[in-house]
Design a protein around this nucleic acid. Structure first.
Lengths: 149, 149
DNA sequence: GACACTTGTTTGGTACGTCAAACATAAGGC
DNA sequence: GCCTTATGTTTGACGTACCAAACAAGTGTC
């Protein structure tokens, strides 16, 4: 019972992860650039909070800012976004398509844990999902059989 | 992208969950009773922190304290501990026995998410694990096949 | 009874993440 | 040019969760 402190030790907080995701989302429509108020709107928090939080993200080297306050993900930040999105997607797919958890609930749960899943676990889950959608007839059968279990 | 605030909205924090688990653990050897310093030792935090955190747990109705500062889980608190332990166990088993994630990593990951998993998701995961260890020959085959995938 | 030790609480400090409100710029409308 | 609005930052506050250190109260030993 010593493991429990790993939670706080996590380098990527839930808040930070979603700030990065928001920058990514907003940036999609503006060539990768995002403004503080757009990020705030995306996250439903105040501009002040975003402004403060961006300081930390900048310090971490996850985002860059230009002289007009425009924000964009650094290469490092892009990588974080990629891995978080990938983890969320695979968890959501597992919950929804394998466990048959209702989609809204799958969305909530995957969102909660996306930044907490370790790389090995994420990878294994990817392999597992890949196996389940592979040509292996066994895989398809299992999904069907479990649905009626 | 509105779901993300559910994280903070969680009624049960990681810290609170582990305080309750610690009280349970310590209580096992003392008829359900735990002292502040034993809880602190179990969690590797200071007595002061535990003392403060217990106020919140008492207010939530999860623990009771007697006139000698002895702490025990309320029925409500016991229920919380049961569900958290169950979720952690099933997640850990899934990661370790199905995904073949190394045990230490499975321990860390399940510990991080134990308090975040919704009841429906937890239930479905239980059913899934039950299916995989059922007599259904398909289940066993899948586990073996995935190992060599 | 006096001293040390253990235990629980309190206090002041830090870090994170939020808010509201005040503020400074910067645009836009006319 | 002036007024309004939008935008970004800063400030003071709150809640959570930790620490170290001071303190109070009980326990033990001699």
């Amino acid at each position: 019972m010593e493991t429990w402190k790993e939670f706080e030790a996590n380098e990527l907080t839930h808040s930070a992860a979603h700030h990065l995701l928001a920058i990514y989302e907003v940036g999609l429509e503006y060539g990768g650039w995002a403004r503080v108020s757009d990020i705030a709107r995306e996250l439903s928090i105040t501009r002040g909070s975003v402004s403060i939080n961006l300081r930390a993200l900048r310090k971490r080297g996850w985002v860059d800012t230009d002289e007009y306050h425009m924000v964009k993900l650094s290469p490092k930040g892009q990588k974080v976004v990629q891995t978080v999105m990938a983890k969320k997607a695979v968890v959501k797919a597992f919950l929804s398509n394998v466990l048959n958890v209702p989609k809204p609930q799958a969305e909530i749960d995957s969102c909660k844990v996306e930044h907490l899943i370790s790389q090995p676990t994420g990878e294994q889950l990817v392999y597992f999902m890949r196996f389940l959608v592979s040509d292996d007839p066994l895989a398809k059968q299992v999904l069907v059989r479990f649905k009626s279990f």
